[in-house]
Simulated assay, not measured.
Amino acid sequence: MPTENRDDSLLARLASRGGQREAAFLAPHHLAAADRLERLIQRAQLVPRVTMSYDPTRVGGRSGAGNDVLSATEASAAARRKLSALADNLPPDCWGVLFDVCGLGKGLQLVETERRWPRRSAKLVLRIGLEQLAAHLGLSPHATGAGSGATRNWLEARLPLIADEPL
């Protein structure tokens, strides 16, 4: 489920402003990067299932189906290759926190407890990781490029509202 659709999401809370003068901890490009990573992890089928599925296409056993590269579809195998490339390009601690938060839905306090980090350190590592991921994906806080977000129109000139000649 994409991050922006969840009201109780950790990332959504970090992106909201605490007060009128306070800036949000995460910028929109951070949320976009987290959303792309979350969708990529879902496509890679790396998140464990919590409930039993009686769908014959998902039940393993006959063909040796499991959670390995041989049984994965080509789309999930390509997503796993992309995730592997991302993991190679990001710092290991940042990648671990990004995967735990965006992929597995863990909270920051749980991440800090599991890694024996000081309080509020996972929040900073998460922001650093999202900044690195956004830069790797080509996302920036400001529009860049030839037009830098300039509005363009397909009409060369506006059409007149009232025609000169009566019909």
Results as ranks from 00 to 15, higher is better:
residue 69 V to C: 05
residue 112 E to I: 11
residue 85 A to V: 04
residue 63 S to M: 04
residue 72 A to S: 14
residue 23 A to I: 04
residue 100 D to Q: 15
residue 58 R to G: 00
residue 30 H to D: 06
residue 108 L to E: 05
residue 71 S to A: 15
residue 28 P to T: 07
residue 107 G to N: 13
residue 51 T to C: 03
residue 105 G to Q: 08
residue 48 P to D: 02
residue 113 T to W: 11
residue 31 L to I: 15
residue 93 D to L: 14
residue 79 A to W: 00
residue 39 R to N: 11
residue 25 F to C: 07
residue 71 S to K: 09
residue 103 G to M: 04
residue 97 V to C: 08
residue 30 H to E: 05
residue 95 W to R: 07
residue 75 A to D: 15
residue 60 G to L: 02
residue 28 P to I: 04
residue 85 A to T: 07
residue 46 L to S: 00
residue 45 Q to L: 07
residue 21 R to L: 14
residue 76 S to D: 08
residue 61 G to F: 04
residue 112 E to N: 10
residue 68 D to F: 12
residue 116 R to E: 11
residue 33 A to D: 04
residue 55 D to C: 00
residue 27 A to E: 13
residue 89 N to V: 05
residue 107 G to D: 14
residue 44 A to L: 02
residue 47 V to S: 05
residue 74 E to V: 07
residue 115 R to S: 14
residue 27 A to R: 09
residue 59 V to T: 13
residue 74 E to P: 01
residue 67 N to C: 12
residue 44 A to D: 02
residue 106 K to M: 15
residue 21 R to I: 12
residue 91 P to Y: 09
residue 27 A to S: 06
residue 32 A to W: 05
residue 113 T to R: 14
residue 37 L to D: 01
residue 64 G to D: 01
residue 67 N to A: 14
residue 85 A to H: 05
residue 37 L to R: 02
residue 115 R to I: 09
residue 95 W to V: 03
residue 62 R to T: 08
residue 89 N to I: 02
residue 74 E to S: 09
residue 51 T to K: 07
residue 27 A to C: 02
residue 76 S to C: 04
residue 56 P to V: 09
residue 83 L to Q: 03
residue 108 L to R: 06
residue 80 R to T: 04
residue 59 V to S: 11
residue 62 R to C: 03
residue 86 L to G: 05
residue 96 G to F: 08
residue 39 R to A: 14
